[in-house]
C-alpha cells in the first residue's frame, strides 16, 4: 500500500466568490461619494479687500500731496491756528518765516536773530539800506526779484495777469508783527500784490 501524501487530500480553502463588475463599480462610486468633502479653506481670499485699500491709500497720498498740507511742523516752524474754513491757495511764490530763517521757495535767504531783536528792529539794520526803521529787507528783495521774473513768465504762459504776483506766506505762530510787516512790505515793493497767509484750521482759537 502506498502511502498517500496527506496534503494531497487536503482541499484548498474555499475562495470567496468575487462580486460582479457592476456591483464593484457601484460600491466604488458610493465610497467615493462618501469620502468626498469640500476643499479646506486654508486662508481668506483678501485680494478684493487689498485692492480697495490700495486704491484708498493711493487716493489719500495724492490728495495729501496736492493739498500742500505737507507743511513741516517743527519747533522752528509752527503755523498759527485759525477758525477759517477756506481751502488753502496753491498758486504763488512761497515765503517761509521760521523762528531762525527766511526762505523763498526752498532757498534760504537769511538767518534771523533772536526773537527779542526781531520784535524791536525786525531782521536787523545790516540787511536794510535805510537803517533799522526801514522796512525793505535787501536780501529778501533780491531773492524775490528773481522769483518774480520766473513767476511772470509762468503767469504769461497761463494767461494770467503778469503785472502782479501772488505770495503764500508760511510763518511761525510766534513771528513778531514787526518782522511779518517787513516781509509783507518787501513783497509789496517787488511786485507781489496779493498774499495768502497759511494757517491751520482749528475749532478753537490758538
Amino acid at each position: 500500500m502506498t502511502e498517500q501524501d496527506p496534503s494531497a487530500n487536503a482541499r484548498p480553502p474555499a475562495k470567496k466568490p468575487a462580486g460582479s463588475v457592476v456591483e464593484y463599480k457601484a460600491a466604488l462610486r458610493k465610497q467615493i461619494r462618501r469620502n468626498a468633502h469640500d476643499p479646506e479653506v486654508n486662508f481668506l481670499n483678501i485680494t478684493a479687500m487689498l485692492d480697495i485699500m490700495t486704491i484708498i491709500l493711493v487716493f489719500l497720498l495724492k490728495t495729501l500731496g496736492e493739498l500742500s498740507a505737507a507743511i513741516p511742523q517743527s519747533d522752528d516752524l509752527r503755523l498759527p491756528n485759525s477758525l477759517i474754513q477756506t481751502q488753502p491757495h496753491q498758486e504763488g511764490i512761497t515765503v517761509t518765516i521760521s523762528k531762525s530763517q527766511i526762505l523763498v521757495g526752498e532757498n534760504k535767504v537769511l538767518s534771523l536773530p533772536g526773537r527779542e531783536s526781531t520784535a524791536q528792529t525786525g531782521v536787523g539794520a545790516q540787511y536794510k539800506r535805510g537803517g533799522p526803521s526801514d522796512l525793505n529787507i535787501v536780501p529778501l528783495a533780491n531773492a524775490l526779484q528773481a522769483a518774480r521774473k520766473t513767476d511772470m513768465a509762468i503767469r504769461r504762459a497761463k494767461g494770467l495777469d503778469p503785472s502782479s504776483s501772488e505770495a503764500i506766506i508760511i510763518a511761525d505762530r510766534n513771528t513778531p508783527y514787526r518782522l511779518l510787516i517787513e516781509v509783507l512790505f518787501t513783497l509789496g515793493q517787488n511786485g507781489f500784490g496779493r498774499y495768502h497767509l497759511m494757517v491751520i484750521q482749528s475749532k478753537k482759537r490758538g
Partner: peptide, 27 residues
C-alpha cells in the same frame, strides 16, 4: 498697507490748512 493707511489718515486729520487773503501793508 493697513499701517500706512492709518498713519496717513491720522496725519491728514491734524494738518488741514487754510489761507487768509490780504494785500501789501500800508505804510
Amino acid at each position: 498697507v493697513v499701517n500706512i493707511l492709518i498713519f496717513v489718515l491720522a496725519t491728514v486729520a491734524v494738518t488741514f490748512t487754510a489761507s487768509i487773503e490780504t494785500t501789501p501793508p500800508a505804510a
